[in-house]
Simulated assay, not measured.
Amino acid sequence: MKPLIILLSSFVISLFAIKIINREYDFALSGRIAMSIMLVFTAIGHFIFTQGMSMMIPKFIPYKGVFVHLTGVFEILLAISLLIPRLKYISGWTLIIFLLLMLPTNIYASINNINYQKGTFDGSGLSYLWFRIPLQFLFIIWTFLSTIRMC
């Protein structure tokens, strides 16, 4: 829920800030700014909740903590690249692929009742997917509209 709030509030703030500065709305740029802010926010979680996020990764994958940190760094790099005009198209497609690849992790975490913030097995369970899957697709559509469709 927090990433959604960050995304929407950042979008509204940047939309009006750009309107004040440029005297016109720029929905695509505002969308990329909001997505970048949201990505940095979620990337920070990779470093704060490493243990819990490691639990979200299936057991057969080694070096879970390193993987969590690398994906956090990757999110920060994507956040930056979304704001570089000549990189926004490739960054958009990369982010869409990344979001699709991360969806099974969220499904695995829900099936196993993982609470990534506490690092325990008392999470929301499958009911969380009713929110998370549509949210993941919202992020994908948002990325497409603000980086690829608007190019």
Score class of each variant (00 low, 15 high):
F27M: 13
A28M: 13
L29Q: 12
G31Y: 08
G31C: 08
G31R: 05
R32V: 06
R32Y: 04
R32Q: 12
I33M: 13
I33H: 03
I33C: 05
M35W: 00
M35E: 01
M35S: 03
S36E: 08
I37K: 06
L39F: 10
L39A: 08
L39N: 05
L39D: 07
F41V: 06
G45D: 09
F49Y: 15
T50L: 07
T50Y: 00
S54Q: 10
M55Q: 06
M55R: 02
I57Y: 00
P58S: 06
P58R: 08
K59Q: 11
I61W: 06
I61C: 08
K64H: 08
K64L: 06
V66K: 11
F67A: 03
V68S: 01
H69M: 10
L70K: 04
L70S: 12
V73L: 12
V73P: 00
V73C: 09
F74V: 03
F74E: 01
E75K: 15
E75P: 08
L77D: 01
L77E: 01
A79R: 00
A79V: 07
I80L: 14
L82Q: 03
L82T: 05
I84A: 13
L87E: 10
K88C: 12
Y89M: 11
Y89E: 14
S91C: 09
T94N: 07
T94K: 03
F98I: 09
F98C: 10
L99C: 07
L99N: 06
L100P: 07
L100E: 09
L101H: 06
M102A: 15
L103T: 14
T105V: 14
T105H: 02
S110E: 06
S110K: 04
S110P: 09
I111D: 07
I114R: 02
N115K: 04
Y116F: 15
T120E: 10
D122K: 09
G123L: 05
L126E: 09
L126V: 14
L129N: 09
W130P: 00
